[in-house]
Amino acid sequence: MNFDASLWLIFILIGLATTLPRASFIVLGSRVALPLVLQRALRYAPAAALAAIVAPDVLVAGGQVEILNPKLAAAGVAVATASLWRNPWLPFIAGMGALHAVRYLSGS
């Protein structure tokens, strides 16, 4: 796929969306405080957002929710290796291995 110049606008806006939260209180100092309720609720944003991106990617194949698909099997293997071992490379090796093994075995 080819991307045009608008890609740079996307980068700058994503950059703002990531730098402003990081810089927020470091720059403002202790003049402002975040309400405690909001602090507690915000803790759940990354987990919810990660799952909202990953789940449709591995559950949906060809527009339908498909429980038996190579991506979901690979995701399962990645979850298992990431929970059991701390080696940072292992989930990638095992997950990619599972993806190709299941694809090969199912003949697709």
């Binding site: 996307i10 806006l13 994503i14 703002l16 969306a17 990531t18 939260p21 990081r22 810089a23 927020s24 209180f25 470091i26 405080a33 975040l34 602090q39 915000l42 803790r43 944003a45 990354p46 919810a48 957002a49 990660l50 991106i53």
Partner: peptide, 17 residues
């Protein structure tokens, strides 16, 4: 895209504070 990036990095508001 921007809202998603923001949601993924909102935890840093807490770290920053």
């Amino acid at each position: 895209i921007v809202v998603t990036a923001l949601a993924l990095n909102l935890r840093f508001v807490i770290f920053s504070a």
